[in-house]
């Protein structure tokens, strides 16, 4: 008992009070692209990118493919790219994840979905399925429920059975060997239900987009309601995407 109290005293209170405003100091999050003109014929950023996330003329970056390696920062002769610590990297649509030049070039803000808010605004149960995830996304998704981020305070929790789940949170590039299991999990979920794609692999295949051992058919059949970018996404990115989607916290500003 005494030892337990000592632990309690040493641990203190760890939860982040305002998840919306929290910024992870030092985190390589949302990239920005300056409006500086590109040198004639330069495609250094395109060549450096390991996931073909960057297109030029004008320069734009797909957060759904980006793995935040920052090779573009190092290779761009004009210093157009910079990574900020902003962890909010989610959008409702695939196109909404495109970052364009300029200070307002970030992803489309997530609008609250009135229907989803009505259904899940006070309680959401999620089943996570990793289909080729490297354990990066899985660890960060687990962390969303730890003592720091404590998503459970909003009635949002992981469940063990798809039977109990409202949302299927997918990570990994969807391997061929997991294709059947992913569909079985989805089929076991009662309506209404929706899919969240977490991480570059789930969203676009990420670093594995060119691999033969994938079967991404499920995501073509069942489109995600929200895309949470990152490699892996910071828990704050995942947590805030859900809070905004369900209108649980008022949107910033």
């Amino acid at each position: 008992m005494f030892k337990s109290l000592r632990v309690r005293a040493s641990q203190g209170s760890q939860f982040i009070v305002d998840l919306r405003k929290a910024v992870p100091n030092g985190h390589r999050g949302l990239p920005t692209i300056s409006t500086a003109p590109c040198p004639e014929g330069c495609h250094a950023c395109v060549d450096a990118c390991p996931t073909e996330a960057i297109a030029i003329e004008p320069v734009r970056l797909d957060l759904g493919k980006c793995v935040f390696c920052s090779e573009c920062v190092h290779e761009c002769p004009e210093g157009k790219f910079a990574f900020t610590s902003n962890p909010h990297l989610s959008a409702r649509t695939r196109e909404g994840l495109i970052v364009t030049e300029g200070p307002e070039g970030g992803p489309d803000p997530i609008a609250t979905d009135a229907a989803l808010k009505k259904l899940y605004g006070r309680s959401l149960r999620m089943r996570q399925v990793s289909a080729g995830g490297c354990n990066g996304c899985e660890l960060e998704l687990n962390a969303a429920l730890n003592v720091n981020f404590d998503l459970a305070r909003y009635g949002i929790e992981w469940v063990a059975s798809p039977r109990h789940a409202d949302a299927l949170v997918l990570s990994g590039p969807l391997t061929r060997n997991m294709a059947e299991a992913v569909r079985l999990a989805w089929d076991a979920m009662p309506d209404p239900r929706f899919v969240i794609a977490a991480g570059a692999c789930a969203i676009s295949g990420g670093l594995y987009a060119q691999a033969e051992a994938l079967d991404r058919g499920f995501l073509r059949d069942v489109g995600p309601v929200v895309y949470v970018a990152g490699c892996p996404p910071h828990p704050l990115g995942f947590v805030n995407a859900i809070l905004q989607l369900l209108g649980i916290a008022p949107s910033a500003g």
Binding site: N177, Y208, Q210, A211, E212
Partner: peptide, 17 residues
């Protein structure tokens, strides 16, 4: 179940990248 085909990809890309 997690087989992504890492090894073939390692040979397909530039070794320094």
């Amino acid at each position: 179940y997690q087989h992504r085909g890492v090894e073939p990809l390692l040979l397909r890309r530039d070794a320094r990248k």
